[in-house]
Design a protein around this nucleic acid. Structure first.
Lengths: 208, 208
DNA sequence: CTCAATAAGTGCAACAGCTCAACTTTTTTA
DNA sequence: TAAAAAAGTTGAGCTGTTGCACTTATTGAG
C-alpha cells in the first residue's frame, strides 16, 4: 500500500544537489520505470531481474544497489507517507478521536481509486493480485508502527511505553488487511475501526 | 508460534494405516529431525537445503515433496492447534467474554515457557531470533482467521459476514506480535486484549 | 588545476531456494 | 496378474541475490 505514482514520480521537494546525485536518481528511475512497465505488461512473476536490468541498460548488480529486493521495484518508497500518517493523528479535527482520525486517513489514502487515474488503478490491481507484493507492502506499512505508537502516546497523554499505544497503532495499520475480501471495503474498514474506537474510548476515558 | 515439540513429534491420534503411509511418515520425520538438529547446531541460515537432504539421505526433490518451503521444516504442523483455538472460544467459562477467552488462550499457549523443557526452549529461541521463521510462523497462525471469525459470529449471534467478526479474529491473532518487544509480555498482551474487549463489549451490547 | 578519495557502475561467477521432466520402484486396486 | 497410482530418484536448470575484482566519473582539498 502507498507508493509513489507509477511511472515518472513527482519530484517532490528534492534538493537540487550535485550532478552526481542527479545521475544516480536518473538511473534509479530508469530501473523503476522499466520494471513497472514490464510488470504491468506481463505480470510480476513473469518478469525476471535480469530482464529488467537489460531493459534499463544496467547490470543486475547495479539494480540491487538501488533496490534491495525485487518487490522494492514496485514500492518505490514515498519518503513522507509516514509524515502524512502522523499528521493525520496530530492535526485531526477538534473533538475527533484518534482511531477515527486513523480511519479517515485509511479510507482516504487507500483503495480510494474513485479518482480514476488509469495508471494508478492498474498499479493497484497489480499489487492486489500478487501475493508477494501484498505481503511486502504490508510489511513496509507496518514499519511505521513505532512512530505511530509514539504519537498516539503523545496526544493521548498515556505513558509512552503503554502497550495499549502500540496495540492500537498495530491494529490500525492492520485494519485494511484484517477485513480483506469483503465486498464494500469502505464499510468493512469502518466497522473494524468501530471496534478500535469503542475500545480506545473505554481505555482512555472518553476524552480526545 | 505454536508447532509440535521439537525432535520426535507426539504422534497424537494417528490412524494406524497401511505400510505405505508409515514409510512416508518415517521419511518425513527423518527429514524434519535432521533439519531441526542442524538448525539448532549451527543456525537456520547457515544450513542449506542440500545439506539437510543429504543428512536425511533423500534428494532435495523428495524433501520439497514433504515440505513446501524451507521454513516449513521447522513448523512441523500441529494438526489440532486450530481445534484448540476454536474450542477455547466455544467452551469458555460461563460469563466470560470472547476476547477474554482468546486472551487466556494466547497467554497459556504461547511463551508459557516456564515449564522448562530444555529442547523446547532452544526451539523457541531459534524461532524468535530468526526473522524468516517469525514471519512464517505468524503467517501460518493467521491461517485460522476465517475459522475463528466464523466461530465468533456463531457464539455472538452476529451475522456471519459482519466485518467486526473478522476484525476481532485478526486482531486477536495479531495481538502477541502487536506488542512484541515489551518487557513483561504477559502484561503487554493483556493490555492489548483490554482494548479489544472493551471495544467488543460496546459493539455487541455487553452480552456474552 | 591537479590528484587522490569516494561513489556509481560493470561483468561474471556462484550460491541458495525451488521446480521440472523423465524414469524406477513399491504399493494398491481390479 | 495386470494396470493404475504413489513415492522416490536423478539431474539439470531457473530465479533471486551476493561477492569480488575492476573501471569509470565526480568531487573536494591543496
Amino acid at each position: 500500500m502507498t507508493a509513489t505514482t507509477p511511472g515518472t514520480s513527482p519530484d517532490s521537494a528534492a534538493a537540487p544537489v550535485g550532478r552526481r546525485e542527479r545521475k544516480k536518481a536518473a538511473t534509479r528511475r530508469a530501473i523503476a520505470d522499466a520494471a513497472l512497465r514490464l510488470f504491468l505488461e506481463r505480470g510480476y512473476d513473469a518478469v525476471g531481474i535480469r530482464e529488467i536490468a537489460d531493459a534499463a541498460d544496467v547490470s543486475t548488480t547495479t539494480l540491487f544497489k538501488h533496490f534491495p529486493v525485487k518487490e522494492a521495484l514496485v514500492f518505490d518508497e514515498d519518503a513522507d507517507q509516514e509524515q502524512r500518517l502522523l499528521d493525520a493523528v496530530r492535526n485531526r479535527p477538534a473533538g475527533q478521536s484518534v482511531p477515527a482520525a486513523l480511519r479517515d486517513h485509511a479510507l482516504s489514502s487507500r483503495l480510494v481509486a474513485a479518482g480514476g487515474d488509469d495508471r494508478f488503478a492498474a498499479f493497484a490491481e497489480l499489487v492486489a493480485t500478487t501475493p508477494a507484493l501484498r505481503d511486502y507492502g504490508q510489511k513496509m506499512w507496518l514499519r511505521h508502527t513505532d512512530a505511530l505508537a509514539e504519537v498516539i502516546a503523545e496526544v493521548s497523554g498515556l505513558p509512552a511505553d503503554d502497550p495499549a499505544c502500540r496495540a492500537l497503532a498495530h491494529f490500525a495499520l492492520e485494519a485494511p488487511r484484517a477485513v480483506h475480501g469483503h465486498d464494500n471495503p469502505r464499510e468493512a474498514v469502518t466497522r473494524a475501526f468501530d471496534l478500535l474506537e469503542q475500545g480506545w474510548e473505554a481505555l482512555t476515558g472518553k476524552n480526545t
